[in-house]
Design a protein around this nucleic acid. Structure first.
Lengths: 227, 227
DNA sequence: CTTTTTTTCGTCTCCCAGACGATAAACATT
DNA sequence: AATGTTTATCGTCTGGGAGACGAAAAAAAG
């Protein structure tokens, strides 16, 4: 067997979190050409003996500094326009990660500085390579998945309140949800959340019951976006 | 720049159609090692200057012999376990195609024989490489997408009846649907189908109104699977 | 002690899905 | 020509869930 065209394969990450009421994406400032000084999605080359999910997990750990946070990671898609990287023919396998707000600051292991950037304040067309499109696809995927999966809890710490979960939906969708109907829906959908037995203390207002993630993998019926 | 690990990149296709009341997938019989004599998904190497969707469209045209049928093509995902191809490190970008039943027989342009194989009669573990998993993922994607998109019409000819469309749902899902509720749902969902003004002739029973695809890209509310 | 804030429980209405009766319009059979 | 068979299409009824709110409960803030 013989002559295949040689490609480079990378793993790029769309890492999303909700912090301070805003949906934020993890970006790195590029220190070398091409696109020097521009924001880019974190990522890197896949090792020659490395499986694709392993490469994504490795890059995520390198970039966030955490071993394996209790978030969610799934393949988003592959992008390989011949001109997308001026250095050569590079196909990237993009991944979508949803993480709870990290208490530890993001310490980039390599020299490039990494930071959370609120997506609402990110002007389009500013990212390196075709990362604008990859980010847009990741955002759309995340918004859609909140409807029919319990993945909103991936943005929350292990124990959370219904109001926290509602805040995730409101931030990701950019909409307002009725607290009473949301409460009924979440607690009434089997397997979505499980009561932990304790309540919050020291917060404002009436203490809220604490929940953890339920075993459900699909929401039946789904949580529909308003309008 | 310089030293990236070299990969080969292929485009593999899960091409589905509904024929004779069965869901069938397009498979090729491999004529050379590895996996000689086994069924495999059609596919081939991506050209060094070729965009990924272009490679998929090209492979689809080569394998079906048709220029660009009125079906649907979307990226399914990428698969790249290091041991998935004994010839070397090959990452494949898999695509899902939904086509109407082709009047022309499938004439494989290359020596390998291609044929439609009903998925129900395909024992698991029989496909080359990791194509069993890719096929399973493609089937699951297709079944799920019928719920919230009008993509069932991609399995139909340009003009079709409500009963034909119902038959697609029933064979893909393997369920029975009530003809009256289905008719109300399809004709009542805006943008799903558009009446063409004519009716069928010479068929059994009362003539049925002909429809064509509507402009909707998403079904609101979705067509839910029973149970 | 009152006000404010937030959680949580109910109620009411509308829409939609599922179950199913009834009618319409063709062909097949006698 | 009359009748039966098949399939399409329209209607009706009922139950569950979503959206819009009212109201009570349980804490902190003033």
């Amino acid at each position: 067997m013989g002559e295949y065209p040689p490609f480079a394969v990378t793993a790029d990450l769309v890492v999303l979190t909700v912090r301070a009421g805003e949906l934020a994406v993890l970006l790195v400032r590029r220190g070398i050409p091409p696109y020097e000084g521009r924001w880019a999605l974190p990522g890197g080359f896949v090792g020659i003996d490395e499986d694709l999910p392993d490469a994504a997990v490795r890059e995520l750990a390198e970039e966030t500094g955490l071993p394996e946070p209790a978030g969610h990671l799934e393949q988003l898609g592959s992008y390989g326009r011949p001109e997308r990287d001026p250095r050569g023919r590079v196909v990237t396998v993009a991944w979508l990660a949803l993480l709870p707000d990290l208490p530890a600051p993001v310490a980039g292991s390599d020299a490039a500085s990494a930071d959370w950037v609120p997506v609402a304040r990110l002007p389009p067309g500013q990212l390196a390579f075709d990362h604008d499109r990859i980010l847009a696809d990741g955002l759309e995927r995340a918004r859609a998945k909140l409807e029919y999966t319990p993945l909103a809890s991936a943005f929350c710490p292990p124990e959370f309140t219904v109001a926290q979960l509602r805040g995730v939906y409101e931030t990701v969708w950019g909409t307002h949800l009725d607290p009473r109907n949301f409460h009924r829906k979440v607690t009434g959908t089997p397997g979505f959340v499980e009561p932990v037995g304790r309540s919050t203390e020291g917060e404002r207002g009436r203490p809220a019951q604490l929940f953890r993630r339920g075993p459900a993998t699909l929401l039946h019926p789904p949580m529909l976006r308003p309008h």
